[in-house]
Design a protein around this nucleic acid. Sequence first.
DNA 1: GACGGCATGTAAGTCGTTACATGATTTG
DNA 2: CAAATCATGTAACGACTTACATGCCGTC
Lengths: 185, 185
Amino acid sequence: MELGRFSHVVLGLLSLGPGSGYDLKALVDRSTRYFWAASYGQIYPELRRLAAAGLIEGESAPTGARARTIYRLTPAGGRALRAWLATPEAGVEVRDEGLLKLFFAGALGTSEGLREKVAAIRVQFEATLGQLRAIEAATVVEGSPATRLVLDYGLTLHGCVVRWCEEAEARLAAGEHSETTQEES
Amino acid sequence: MELGRFSHVVLGLLSLGPGSGYDLKALVDRSTRYFWAASYGQIYPELRRLAAAGLIEGESAPTGARARTIYRLTPAGGRALRAWLATPEAGVEVRDEGLLKLFFAGALGTSEGLREKVAAIRVQFEATLGQLRAIEAATVVEGSPATRLVLDYGLTLHGCVVRWCEEAEARLAAGEHSETTQEES
DNA sequence: GACGGCATGTAAGTCGTTACATGATTTG
DNA sequence: CAAATCATGTAACGACTTACATGCCGTC
């Protein structure tokens, strides 16, 4: 059986603890979604495929009459996860509409347009930064070293973007947009 | 006619100057690809759609017997581009396999595994940073304020990630992985 | 005349989102 | 008892990549 990129996300999530498809979706939405989103349309079919392949196993655990299946990693699933973790190749794909708009903002003709697009990027990253801080506050004790490290990464990076935007906005407002030579290292 | 997200990329690229599908692909590969990639399989069909919609127009400009079509924005295309630029909504989507591996690296059991994953991220961002610096060196004079701003964004951000990785690696090597309380602001 | 770059395209397949459909349980 | 949340799923669509196919041009 061929494992897709998303298969490893499910294996990884289940390595943090057993859960239902619904649980996984909720977990994704407050963790990996910032660097790897997932929808129900992916999760449920993937759980079935992985169970059929013997990498995870589901146990029926209904709440009253409400059907519910809790999945957990099998030993084979754990091996598959660690094998994937051991491979070094890693790609980053980004689709950033805000940067795209900034990149093409010259078509607006005004330097005011540039500043607005930078501000839009800042507002968006400030919002995400706020979400990450809320997650941080809710995670003070729990969380593995790995997940805390990734949260720290997110906080640092979003902070960097916000700071860059503030500085760029200040420069643009000061009208220095024609000759900004880099002076620092 | 419905414009997809990619339509605006093509309109934007053509707003920087006319070009063939081949030219656009080459331009994407040294500019927007870091935040919005594109393949021939998207570009050529999209050029036809936009031409059919009257937002761009193609002019046959063969090189000898080699067919070649140069596209340029029409006034309607320019309006469509500016209308899109004026909308503030902007989303960011990221698929980062390196962060995913770091996030799940707890399954490796060793703190050594964590450091390796951070190092892998650093190596990758250093490589991209090198590419961005090469683009910067090749762009000293040309380039609009907007495109230079985006390049600066990329240089700053990738620098931030590399620095974060270096610090995280140092912390992990020092064995501080169990109790790292944030002390700074 | 071989190789690398120019130039255009298509077909198949993967990946992923959105919207829909259904129904149980808990909480205010 | 209404609304939010829990819980599972599918169908249709759109987005994007990969691999393939073709052939000209310039240069070494």
